[in-house]
């Protein structure tokens, strides 16, 4: 059992990680957008824009739709941010430091991922408006399609570790990282991660062809909260990818926590770059892809991982 951070320190760490992570995501988004659109890159603007936009959204007043389910509507972004925090909490920061590292950390993380569906559905449903509702419906189809491959592809790294605790999974990669040991794992994980965080090219519930989908009716601080929570979710899956496939804190020269941050940033860059590269799939294509391709592949991956152990 590893020493935990003390509760106040853990809370501060989680809030700090979420805010810094969302900011990093916003900056990376801005840079990727600038590069793809071939605008000149203005660095001061890139680093200021997320803060300024956040400040603008905070100074504005909120508007409401006609008769929304107000409590559920306000709860949804908070729930999503909370899930990101829960997911991040189980990921060890360092060899000797973690916010929470329960024996069933993998299950807790998976539970957090499956509650994303609840948050998005509530967010779309409670606005009482057409476009968010369609977004909510879309995410249900999407969520049931990606969840099983997501669980299976994350379960495979638990096999060589013979444990569901994330720190054991990281430790088991001392000799060989899972990205090499299970070559199918990371690619599948990245696809299902894009789906789980509903970011492009799989941003069905919040897509541009719905004028923003579940977030098309939210304004001001509510919009900021939702965007922040989505960015937090992205950080949460990237951090998990770094721990489960890239050996977490393991690495030469640098301290462990820095390795965790660097590997997380690397995966964030990959996820954001691919969201600015690929065209959005059609939702039925994605559902077919998830059930017919990703699910069998993740099963193959798990058998492969199991066979290696025998």
């Amino acid at each position: 059992m590893r020493p935990y951070l003390s509760p106040p320190l853990a809370v501060i760490t989680m809030i700090g990680v979420l805010i810094a992570g969302s900011y990093a995501v916003a900056v990376l988004e801005e840079i990727a957008g600038t590069l793809v659109s071939r605008r000149p890159l203005r660095l001061t603007y890139v680093f200021w824009a997320p803060l300024a936009t956040a400040a603008l959204l905070l100074t504005q007043g909120r508007t409401s739709t006609e008769r929304p389910d107000a409590q559920a509507w306000a709860l949804a972004p908070a729930l999503l941010a909370g899930l990101a925090a829960v997911g991040l909490a189980v990921i060890p920061i360092d060899q000797n430091t973690s916010v929470a590292d329960p024996a069933a950390g993998f299950v807790l993380y998976s539970a957090a991922i499956s509650y994303v569906m609840v948050a998005v559905y509530l967010h779309g449903w409670s606005a009482n408006s057409t476009l968010p509702l369609i977004g909510a419906y879309r995410f249900i189809a999407q969520a049931f399609a990606f969840q099983i491959p997501f669980l299976l592809v994350l379960l495979a790294p638990a096999l060589p570790a013979e444990s569901l605790a994330i720190s054991d999974i990281v430790e088991a990669q001392e000799s060989l990282w899972n990205v090499v040991r299970q070559p199918l794992g990371l690619p599948i994980f990245l696809v299902v991660s894009a789906a789980a965080t509903f970011s492009l090219p799989l941003d069905f519930p919040d897509a541009a062809d719905l004028a923003g989908g579940t977030s098309s009716e939210v304004s001001a601080s509510h919009r900021l909260a939702w965007r922040g929570a989505r960015a937090g979710l992205l950080v949460m899956v990237a951090a998990m990818g770094a721990s489960a496939f890239l050996g977490g804190w393991q690495g030469p020269w640098l301290p462990g926590w820095l390795w965790v941050i660097l590997k997380t940033l690397l995966l964030l860059v990959i996820l954001i770059a691919s969201s600015h590269t690929f065209a959005r799939l059609r939702i039925e294509r994605f559902v077919v892809l998830a059930w017919v391709v990703l699910l069998p592949l993740s099963l193959v991956n798990i058998f492969f991982a199991g066979a290696l152990l025998l």
Binding site: A111, Y115, V118, Y121, A143
Partner: peptide, 11 residues
């Protein structure tokens, strides 16, 4: 696992 299962079931 109860929590995990129920998120999907209740949705």
């Amino acid at each position: 696992v109860l929590m995990l299962m129920m998120a999907g079931e209740m949705t």
